[in-house]
Design a protein around this nucleic acid. Sequence first.
DNA 1: ACACTAAGTTTAGAAAGTGAACAAATCAAC
DNA 2: GTTGATTTGTTCACTTTCTAAACTTAGTGT
Lengths: 353, 353
Amino acid sequence: MAQALGLSKAAMSGLARDLIQLGILREADTIYGQGRPSIRLDLHPDCAFFVGVSLLQDPAPMILGNLNGEIIARAEIPLSRDPAVIADAISEALPTLLSAHPVAAEKLAGIGVALSGFVDETRKNCVQSTLLNWQDVPLADLVRDKTGIETFLENDAKAVAVDEKLFGSAREIQNFSVVSLGDGIGCAHFIDGRLYRGNHGGAGEIAHCTIEPGGAPCRCGKRGCLDTVASMKAIKEMSRAEGFECVSLAEIENQASSGNTAAIRILHRAGSALGLAIANLIQMNDPGLILITHVEGSFDGLFGTVVNQAIETNVLPRYAGQTPIRIRRVDGDIWARGAASIAAHHFILGPNP
Amino acid sequence: MAQALGLSKAAMSGLARDLIQLGILREADTIYGQGRPSIRLDLHPDCAFFVGVSLLQDPAPMILGNLNGEIIARAEIPLSRDPAVIADAISEALPTLLSAHPVAAEKLAGIGVALSGFVDETRKNCVQSTLLNWQDVPLADLVRDKTGIETFLENDAKAVAVDEKLFGSAREIQNFSVVSLGDGIGCAHFIDGRLYRGNHGGAGEIAHCTIEPGGAPCRCGKRGCLDTVASMKAIKEMSRAEGFECVSLAEIENQASSGNTAAIRILHRAGSALGLAIANLIQMNDPGLILITHVEGSFDGLFGTVVNQAIETNVLPRYAGQTPIRIRRVDGDIWARGAASIAAHHFILGPNP
DNA sequence: ACACTAAGTTTAGAAAGTGAACAAATCAAC
DNA sequence: GTTGATTTGTTCACTTTCTAAACTTAGTGT
């Protein structure tokens, strides 16, 4: 099976034996068919461990994961805007986290940190983060100096995309985009099986696509960005401005289904905007899958319906329905998971994947 | 110099000698510095020839190109909607075209055909073309059967992008997008040094991004597509609807500069729409270059100015001006050139570039 | 129990790449 | 000029890696 990837049977045989001896591969199940059964190989999950930290929440989740993408242990550290304080906190929390597994400490292969903002192509420096108020912060090296472990940064949505490609539901898909709905809107593309970071690390900045030309001012400095209309933060703020305070999408959905016209209007506006942006993404990049991850509950209410409708009506009719849209409810650890995946990705595929 | 690409000096030496003996490489100029001068190698332009045909115009241009991207000969064939007639016409025009160069006939390595529409991933079949009214037409095999030469199809904008990457001004750039303005609007992306065709071959269909939600109906079936506002065809139609007939952009620019408010309005609307679409492209994909090719004259009038303004105002301020926009005036042979480049691309890089 | 099939292993031999030494072509300094 | 420094390009013995073909192994089908 795996031999068709360019090598002869003999070479495979030798390589596999070496890797099994090194403890990296192991023989999994046997597949019966005609002739001698074949033995499937898989990665030995205990051969490397990774730590992931999300700087999107306070407290910041920190997880220990293995090569199967399973979470082995979890901790939290207080969020800070001071890079040195964060590096210290990670370093201090590390021993406890590693104690969850007997060999994790000696086989810790990398630390990943997910944050909202731009990361340079070395994945070592945060070029800019509005949320953290950072500019050219070499956080990866700070963490590495404190912990002695190789560390990588990544944008939140890109980290989620890598997680989905390595361990999630996009494993087999070469071209897909992740749209990650949280307080903000993130997006990242996998193209030809590789994460596409863009020329300045800014690929996927869908949140600041202009959706309503001349619309409301955005904190980024321009007007009518998708972020001002369709992010959960914007939806909640609009509901507050309309006089009914809601802390979750589900609450606004409730208001809408019980006839609150303002709530209906807000969800319509947000859903159409998000749908239009996704439709433009489909037109522009023709991905094989759009994976929408959301931390809020219900995506099957008005908001989700409008999003789907808006996608349908704004995609070339020939294509309508051709691009699968997959919705995935995720928990708040998704970014920490993604961060760990960044470290795993580097471990598996090396510096130039 | 070139050795740093993974091989030792010794290996390079042997390989280069072999390729020179085969007539594929040749020793070009010598570069003097400290120490023994180095000899630059380049492709021998006479080692392979390619034919390119554009089905975007009537008559359809047909060119003979070499490995340097130079046009050696040119012909025209009548355009037809019947694939068999086209294959015949190409086959009949071939001998005359090849007679322009003594060794072209024996070293003809491929034929490329550029068309407006979708091409499958084998580059052999046209899945759909509105302009030609085609659906699942295996034109490449028809041409190959008639001529005996391996043939490849490609979408017009993608062919132009390949031309720019191989022989044009984007040779060194890994990530760029081409926006090709003709009667319609085409777009194609190079990502990580490879043409990105999209999951259904539809990447770059910027012309049918919704720019004016609920706007004018488009021939594609939806509303408010960029194509209905900013294509040269649309601009000319709008001018006709306003009562002044124009056959070129330059004419409308003239009208506008002499105070015709309708002309100014049309150019403003078209320019803002195109600029917004390009801005969204930049936000979405963060390319290292946007290359706008246009066959019409003047891009330095009102239209061009508005396009540039709209890009500036709709791109994340942090990015504004970070993405170079290059404008390139091209002649009507651009698509035939691109088509030849598709064949060259296949010759140089093989089936899976 | 028998052939049949396909996976995995072993072997010798070919292919391809490496490293070090060496030859060649130029510049710079005396 | 001559000499030495410098860097490119070549040669050659050696090593690594892969392949092809024969062989072994572990199942299925009759």
